[in-house]
Amino acid sequence: MKLKHLNLIFSGVLIVLAGIFFFYADTFKMLPGQADIGPKAFPRFVSVVILILAILLIITELKKNDQTKVQLFNLKFLIGLVTAVLYFLLFKTVGFVLCSMASIFIMEVLLLNEPFKKAWPLVTAVAILAPIVIQLIFGVALKVPLPAGLLSFLF
């Protein structure tokens, strides 16, 4: 995708965002007899400026002949994103240690720069040991109540 097109889409998103914030500000309560400019004024001012900046961005992008191309997604990023979302959804039920082991393993494989056949002992060792060490530091020493999930019989 061209950077120019991305910038134009981004400007569109900014305009929508500015609109939402501008009109939603109408719902704010005012104190009776409030003397200052109220809770609406600042967010509205910021939304208007964002709107103006977005339009400026559209104009400058349309004017220049920028052929730079940007690749926003690839399969590795999408797998990483899905891993992160699953981590978030399963965090409480499956627990910190197991979620972390799985996601570290997947991300390591995504980032591998050498054959899996050669790297697997290190990859597996890091995926298993790192979450345990982090659990010991945060869960045990720093007393952060990390969800134990399926391993609740252990922690």
């Binding site: 992160a84 570290i104 991300m107 720069n113 790297a119 290190l122």
Partner: peptide, 17 residues
């Protein structure tokens, strides 16, 4: 490939804790 996944987990902890 080792550091990035560990950073990911630390980020999760940082925002949760």
């Amino acid at each position: 490939y080792i550091l990035t996944p560990i950073i990911f987990v630390l980020c999760i902890i940082g925002s949760f804790a």
